[in-house]
Design a protein around this nucleic acid. Structure first.
Lengths: 147, 147
DNA sequence: TATTGTTATACTCTATAACTATA
DNA sequence: TATAGTTATAGAGTATAACAATA
C-alpha cells in the first residue's frame, strides 16, 4: 500500500510540476540550489540520487529556460557550478505552491495531529533505511542522500 | 517523502518478485485470482488498474509458465476466463513469503503498534482518495479498484 | 591515471490507437 | 453498433558505457 500510495503521490506531483514546465527532479534541483547555494553537478547528482548522465538531461532545459546557469569553477575547471537565477527563484516559488496544493489534497483526510504522526512514522522508516544501508553495505537509492 | 519512500518500497518489491520470475503486477494478479476465483480479463484490468493491453503482456508469460490458463467463457465467447493453476498457487505462496520479507525489512524500525498506526493512517488517505475521486469525477488510478 | 561532464544507446514501463472476433 | 481481447507503436524515465576535457 505504501508503494501504491507513493506512486499516486508521485503521479500527482508530476502533473502539478509539469504544469510549471518542471519534472519532480528539476523541482528538487531548484530547491537544493535555493537552500545550499551554487553546487557542482557531482554534488547535485549525489544529493538527488540521479546518475550524472540523467542530471545533464535535467539541467539542459533548466539552463535553456534561464532558471539556472552553468559556470566553470575557476579553481577546478572540470567542475561546472550550477547557479540559481532570479527567474529560477520565482519559478521555484510558484512550483512550491503547486506542490503544497497537491500535498493538501492528498492528505485532506488527516487532521494536523494525524499528519504529524504520519510524517513522524515515515521519518522513522526512512532514517532506518538510509543509515541501515550505510552500515550493512547494501546501498540503495535512499542512502546516497546522506553519503 | 511519501512518494520517495513508496518508490523505494516498489523497487524492493520488484527485486524480490523478479527473483521469483514475477512482476509486482503479476503478483497482484495471482493474488486476486487466489482470493476471488476465475476472472475475465476485463475484471482483472479493472481490479489491478492496468490497461487491457498491458494486462495481456502480463498474462502471456504467466500462461506460458503454466501459472494460469485462459479458457473461453461458454456464455460469452468474447470473454477469456483466467484460472489459477496449482503451479500458480505454489508460486504465489513463495512470492508472498518474499513479499513478507521485504515488508519486514522495510518496517523493521517500527514496533507493532507503530505499524498498525501507519497502516491505519495510510488507509485513511487511500480511502479518501478513492471515493473522493468517485464523487467529484476526477478519476485517477486508485479509484478504479472500487468501481 | 582519475575525475567532471557529455553523448549515445538500450531497456523498462506506460499510454494510445488500430485490429479481430464475438455479441 | 458495442464489447473483449490482441497487437503495434510511441513516449517517458532510467541505467550503462564510451567519450572529451581537465586534474
Amino acid at each position: 500500500m505504501l508503494a501504491l500510495l507513493g506512486h499516486e503521490a508521485m503521479r500527482r506531483l508530476r502533473d502539478a510540476h509539469t504544469a510549471n514546465g518542471l519534472t519532480p527532479r528539476q523541482f528538487h534541483i531548484l530547491g537544493l540550489l535555493h537552500d545550499r547555494g551554487p553546487l557542482a553537478q557531482t554534488d547535485l547528482a549525489a544529493e538527488t540520487d540521479t546518475a550524472a548522465s540523467v542530471l545533464v538531461t535535467q539541467l539542459n532545459p533548466l539552463e535553456a529556460d534561464g532558471l539556472v546557469t552553468r559556470t566553470l569553477d575557476p579553481r577546478d575547471r572540470r567542475r561546472h557550478l550550477v547557479v540559481l537565477t532570479e527567474t529560477g527563484r520565482q519559478r521555484l516559488r510558484t512550483a512550491a505552491a503547486a506542490q503544497q496544493e497537491v500535498e493538501d489534497e492528498l492528505f485532506r483526510s488527516l487532521n494536523d495531529s494525524q499528519r504529524s504522526r504520519l510524517t513522524q512514522l515515515l521519518v522513522l522508516v526512512r532514517d532506518d533505511l538510509t543509515d541501515g544501508n550505510e552500515r550493512c553495505g547494501t546501498p540503495t537509492s535512499l542512502d546516497r542522500k546522506t553519503s
